[in-house]
Design a protein around this nucleic acid. Structure first.
Lengths: 170, 170
DNA sequence: CTAGCAATGTCAACAAGGCTGACATAAAAC
DNA sequence: GTTTTATGTCAGCCTTGTTGACATTGCTAG
């Protein structure tokens, strides 16, 4: 990191961090970090017979209370059959409530029940604890960079959804 | 972000970026970014009848040529049955070669064949292109922060493996 | 040398969670 | 009144993870 035989290339600083090796490090970091990122919720979900898909549904319903099935489909990027399987069990288990839309009665507005909120809290707490520790250890500047890079890595469509989410929740 | 009723808390800057909302943003950024991160390789793999598991195997065999099955198992964090299924198809298809170990004949040393290297290149090129663009757009400082946070997010055991990988490949 | 342990491979069965395609219903829109 | 939209559902398939059991080979310690 200090000297060495010009690790980046011979074209100056703008390329210095874009060698194959640096990119590979970034790629592997994503792989290993994502593993850690999902491990705590996975452990909580498993004894309840739920999986990551349930977590995602619960998360985004919490995040956008009253959202419609179609909106959830777009955010999660899965098929309706796939989402429906998950949603059905959550509704049957009394964690999610599906109310007929008022404006448009074809739509279903999704809400977490009290029990659903409990699970959401438990999952959030676990995942947030890890992210908080990582953020604390890394410092504010690193966190800003982290989010900048992640945002740049998203597909444009997903980036729009992501940004819309954060502004809604302000 | 500018004013409002003290979004972080009343304890000053060190807590300012650790509100629930900030943590949620980080969590959602991971989710959406990981989607983008895997999308290009997935598209390449699909017509060949391979999946993400094949990609990971090919990546880490390339990264650590001659690695053993056990080592790969530890890096990937899956069961040997799961890995073996993938490895078997890659060997049958002539992308990976498995040579009996010299030092310890129980071990198998794994190598990419020329054809395997071709696939690895194709996958790498696609994934690196996205990461490179993101890194370029975000700038060197952001990239450093990105990796710092990701590293802090890993399980300690995985962090060790990650760091060992990068030092070996130097 | 032999007993035990280690590294690998393999069979079978199962589950989660993606996918496609087809079809049904109710409500909105035209 | 026909068409489109939002949703739900059935059936079947695939990948990739899991567990448990078992076989083979080779290293290692006694």
């Amino acid at each position: 990191m200090a000297e060495g035989p010009r690790p980046g290339g011979q074209h100056g600083e703008t390329l210095l961090f874009l060698t194959d090796e640096q990119l590979r490090k970034g790629i592997e970091a994503m792989f290993f970090a994502y593993k850690g990122f999902t491990s705590d919720p996975d452990r909580i979900l498993e004894p309840r017979g739920y999986g990551r898909a349930h977590h995602r549904a619960v998360h985004f319903i919490h995040r956008s209370e009253g959202t419609t099935v179609n909106n959830l489909l777009a955010i999660l990027g899965v098929t309706k059959q796939s989402l429906n399987r998950v949603l059905r069990t959550l509704i049957e288990d009394g964690l999610v409530e599906s109310r007929v839309g008022t404006r448009d009665k074809r739509e279903r507005n999704l809400y977490l029940t009290d029990e659903g909120k409990l699970l959401e809290r438990e999952l959030s707490d676990a995942q947030q604890a890890r992210v908080r520790d990582a953020f604390r250890a890394a410092g504010p500047g690193a966190v800003a960079g982290f989010r900048t890079v992640l945002e740049a890595m998203m597909d444009p469509e997903m980036r729009r959804r992501y940004q819309r989410l954060t502004e809604n929740a302000r």
